[in-house]
Design a protein around this nucleic acid. Structure first.
Lengths: 88, 88
DNA sequence: ATTCATTTGTCCGTATGTATA
DNA sequence: CTATACATACGGACAAATGAA
């Protein structure tokens, strides 16, 4: 599973598009990380905040952040948040 | 989202029913408030006590009390409790 | 001033049921 | 039949406010 290209920090979720919502969300979050909008070492917005902003379900956001964790871009800490990791 | 009717102060949570658990709980709590079992100005039982009595998860109770707060029936005070408000 | 228990608030992880494509 | 997505629910962990010792 590869991160789709063509998504920016300000992209909106396209429910009709080819890419699954969770993968679009992952791509947008990476764009925001690389734009410095979510700085290294800091937490990205919480599940509830992302849920409000993008209007998607909890599970969908978890799926996106789990994927980013697999890619080594973030690390989720139970009870604290999802933190942006420095790149190798 | 409307409060479902048909729940009394002594109703039990029905996991198989039509209504979500958090909404059933909200309806039961309102019934207890209106029955005077939880008097105005006093705190309802704590999250842990409600958790024990009803056997539901923390988040479910918070969801119910948040809803009652939206309805103006209670006001939660951090570190103190959830207090029954006088009705307009 | 510190410690401790209690309580609410807020996180993420996971699982289940339902609906849809 | 599988993948996606949503709502619900449980669990565990961390944080902050309060009040009492």
């Amino acid at each position: 599973m590869d991160l789709p290209s063509g998504y920016t920090a300000d992209s909106e979720i396209d429910d009709e598009g080819m890419d699954p919502v969770w993968l679009q969300l992952a791509a947008i979050l990476v764009a925001r990380i690389e734009a410095g909008r979510y700085p290294t070492g800091r937490a990205i917005p919480s599940l509830n905040q992302l849920r409000q902003e993008f209007g998607v379900a909890r599970g969908t956001i978890v799926k996106a952040t789990n994927y980013l964790a697999e890619l080594g871009r973030v690390r989720a800490v139970h009870g604290r948040g999802v933190f942006v990791l420095p790149q190798d």
